[in-house]
């Protein structure tokens, strides 16, 4: 199917871009960074084309008009890939931090490759009719807001990882060339904080939107469903991070561990929960 082929091309471009990002860690040729961004941009264009085909197919089912086609594992992974890549291009592109490619883009690749595997294991790109509860204008708002938050947190995770590496380099008393090409510890720490400070309200707004939607659909704002609970846990972990930093003044390694735990919760909320929840699970029921 055309959509699947286009998506695989996009995934290949993302992987290629990420590979360049890794090479750029060790080779200071600026062209690598430029080409990394070029490949990512090309991937996004092809991805959008595949998304366009997906939407056309999706809307052939009357109940699906005019909603975003993310009611399946593939759809969600595809959207997540786009969100992370787009966020990376905007954030790291604007700050000229191509060196961060190796730290952030693997997540986009994981999502893209996961999506490709999904199409192979189920034999399609999972275009299904929307369940009645999902046939609401919230379908076009709530998941997107949450995914943007996830993408921002994914970025922050990469920044935190770079910070840990930078710290290790400097502690070793024999910093390698990578140390001089990565941003300073202060800059990484600051960027990590700013990303999380930006993502936290987005996540919380997304959770609130989910609650309002749930209230419209089922009459209850909050039901302690696994996905709801884990998104709350994620928000609480990042709240701990923000309190540690803003009130207790924590910086550096310990604060980064908290933020990384937060992203672990993001991944669990996005994927792990599907094995637990019946309401939100892509894997539990068609």
């Amino acid at each position: 199917m055309m959509e699947s082929v286009l998506f695989q091309i996009a995934a290949a471009l993302y992987v290629a871009g990420t590979a360049l990002g890794f090479v750029f860690l060790y080779n200071r040729d600026e062209r690598l960074s430029r080409w990394m961004f070029n490949l990512l941009a090309a991937g996004v264009v092809v991805h959008l084309a595949s998304l366009g085909m997906r939407m056309k197919h999706f809307w052939e089912i009357p109940e699906n008009r005019w909603y975003l086609p993310i009611n399946s594992f593939f759809g969600a992974l595809s959207a997540m890939t786009l969100a992370i890549t787009a966020t990376f291009v905007v954030v790291e592109g604007r700050h000229r931090l191509g060196i961060m490619g190796a730290f952030v883009l693997p997540w986009a690749c994981a999502a893209a490759v996961g999506a490709v595997f999904r199409t192979h294991s189920v034999g399609s790109t999972e275009i299904h009719g929307l369940a009645p509860a999902l046939q609401s204008y919230w379908m076009n708002i709530h998941p997107m807001v949450i995914m943007i938050a996830y993408a921002i947190f994914g970025n922050a995770f990469g920044v935190g990882l770079a910070l840990l590496i930078q710290e290790r380099q400097l502690k070793s008393k024999r910093p390698q060339e990578l140390c001089y090409r990565l941003p300073s510890i202060e800059e990484l720490d600051n960027l990590n904080y700013r990303l999380i400070a930006a993502g936290f309200p987005v996540l919380t707004v997304g959770i609130i939107m989910g609650g309002i939607w749930a209230h419209e659909a089922w009459g209850r704002f909050w039901g302690w469903d696994a996905k709801e609970t884990w998104s709350l846990i994620t928000a609480l972990v990042y709240a701990v991070f923000l309190h540690q930093r803003l009130v207790a003044g924590w910086r550096g390694r310990k604060a980064v561990y908290t933020s990384m735990l937060g992203f672990a919760c993001v991944v669990f909320t996005f994927i792990g929960v599907n094995f637990l929840s019946r309401l939100h699970g892509y894997l539990s029921a068609p």
Binding site: A226, T229, W230, I233, L236, A239, V240
Partner: peptide, 12 residues
């Protein structure tokens, strides 16, 4: 906050 986090996780 940690207590709430752990308790909520246990509930899932």
């Amino acid at each position: 906050l940690c207590a709430l986090i752990l308790a909520s996780a246990a509930g899932t």
